[in-house]
Design a protein around this nucleic acid. Structure first.
Lengths: 342, 342
DNA sequence: GTGAAAGCGCTAACAC
DNA sequence: GTGTTAGCGCTTTCAC
């Protein structure tokens, strides 16, 4: 339909054939010149072809090119939800990095639903992406599918077994991040610290809880199970959990495992008239770009989100361009950033 | 290279030919069945083909399909910056809507730089997208380029002349939005209201200022030019401008033309110890998903961001599928949402 | 230095 | 009911 439309309006794009005809050479020659594989092409012809290309406003049809080269220079990115500021930033970082290396990205939101994720994966494969960045908080990826698709991918923020097409795994050292966060609070004299995190079943939560516990251990303290609340990494859970904590126990600080949890927690504290950090200190995690912009700039643990996106894309593209360059795991260090809430 | 790799590992994907061979029919027959254009195909053959497809794990190669059909079922989305929550939400809404209709999106961040925007536009054209959603706050699009590319597009939140390939224009009625916002504040007894907006040169600001002024006019009041500050729609400008207002004049409310401006303004007010809304009321604009989640839930003007994305995509796809269905301009109504800051 | 030919995986006329 | 043919726009091998 559209094809017909275009033709009707006389608006078919210029192809290398058009250029070839007008330059009096073959399409092959034009292709060589335009792709700079023109070592053996006469200076004269080369000039003619380039100027014709400009004049006729030639734009390569990358669909056709991909079909023959079997490379699309497109990378798929699968995240749970781009509305989550952590992923917004990660996606932007990946896109920038990819673009710098001449690649484009296609974004997919899985909403953390395995079925969606699988659908996206097969979709991306069908669309001929060269590689995939797979990021998640909780979901365990379908390793079989990944294997079957046989398309190079990079796993971000999640554990995954050895796979032929795994380019690398990049992860934040969240254990150490949680340790730093709790350590920071303990050093400031807090001894009843609440812990808010995502699903209790997820590796992400388990690992952070380990760090949290270790911080206590090395200070000769124990964690009161009453104070650890696991649910989701989202704002709403931070709000609800804090309200519930306030109702049932006492504490002088909250160690949140995401900035959104911290934002939710602060809303609850404010609602109950608890001062921050006086009545209760709050630590976030991630250091999303909003953290410093809040009414009350949030103290948090920096995960170097932008950098991690760049590193991930670079590792993936390195692998695509030379499969020998496989990296096993890249672990990013965290650091506490002190602002006003703790 | 990659192709070679795959072949080496013996992992070429199943094609329609493979199925045809094993089913003892021609590729054409397989294509017909798989595309459900199988009115004249025997029940028996049909069954065989489907089961073979499943068994061999067939996935259509959409690159090849696009090349011949000249349709990709991909829509390009160009926004200034996905980190801006307004655009994050818009993009997510567009993506959801597109997906529901069987399309995918490719996202491009222009950072509001015309050169980037043009690069993205030609890039998207080269990648065979069926249509483009072009969203911007300030940038005036290159109409010539759009015309030359001749690819259907939809203009979002910006003015644009008549163009052959313009599917529709969707816009929020920001004049009325600003009017409502100022009217709301005036009705609550404020008579010195500051106005914070984006670039003074942009149509977006001009239109909103008109609404702001009209609200004053119809209340028999005048706008003190001292109180209107134009710069950017971003947080940092809201912060700086509020500080400067505080230093130079007096006012009891701020009418912000984006929620991010409001967030910046509130940070400044808090820094100076001005209570909200007691010392100064704050109205936002957009109603981004963060607005209700803030420490102090933000009163604002709802733009129905999600809905606008859906409407835009639907209008664009309607046009793609039937160019008769061109819509001129779609204007979305705003409404005040009252929370805690005004 | 350049071109002819083959083919990427798929669809669409039209023939049988 | 099904197959044949002819491409889509491009790259690439190999022949000249």
């Amino acid at each position: 339909m559209t094809a017909v439309q275009r033709r009707m309006r006389g608006c078919v794009a210029t192809t290398i054939k058009d250029i070839a005809r007008r330059a009096g050479v073959s399409p092959a020659t034009v292709s060589k010149v335009l792709n700079r594989k023109d070592a053996f092409i006469g200076e004269e012809t080369r000039k003619r072809i380039w100027s014709l290309a400009r004049e006729l406003n030639y734009r390569p049809n990358s669909i056709a090119r991909s079909l023959v080269t079997r490379r699309s220079r497109v990378i798929g990115i699968v995240v749970p939800d781009i509305l989550n500021p952590y992923f917004t930033e990660l996606v932007r970082a990946c896109d920038d990095a990819a673009r710098r290396r001449g690649y484009t990205t296609i974004l997919c939101n899985s909403d953390g639903i395995p079925a969606n994720e699988e659908a996206h994966l097969t979709f991306l494969a069908g669309h001929g992406v060269d590689g995939i960045v797979l990021a998640a908080s909780d979901v365990v990826p379908n390793a079989d599918l990944l294997q079957a698709l046989n398309i190079p991918f990079l796993s971000m923020d999640r554990e995954i077994g050895e796979l032929d097409c795994l380019a690398a795994r990049v992860d934040t050292d969240c254990r150490s991040g949680a340790l730093q966060s709790a350590g920071y609070l303990i050093a400031r004299g807090h001894d009843r610290i609440a812990f808010l995190s995502g699903s209790a079943a997820s590796a992400n939560t388990r690992i952070r809880l380990e760090g949290f516990e270790e911080a206590h251990r090395s200070a000769g303290m124990a964690v009161d199970p009453e104070l650890v609340r696991c649910g989701e990494f989202q704002h709403s859970f931070g709000y609800r959990a804090t309200l519930s904590l306030l109702d049932t126990t006492s504490f002088s600080a909250i160690c949140c495992m995401s900035d959104m949890l911290a934002i939710g927690a602060m809303a609850a504290l404010r609602e109950r008239g608890v001062g921050i950090p006086g009545g209760c200190a709050v630590m976030g995690f991630d250091n999303i770009y909003l953290a410093p912009l809040l009414d009350r700039p949030l103290s948090t643990v920096d995960r170097r989100i932008f950098e991690s996106g760049r590193i991930a894309i670079d590792a993936l593209i390195d692998f695509l361009e030379d499969p020998e360059r496989r990296r096993s795991a890249i672990l990013l260090e965290t650091s506490v950033v002190e602002r006003t809430t703790a």
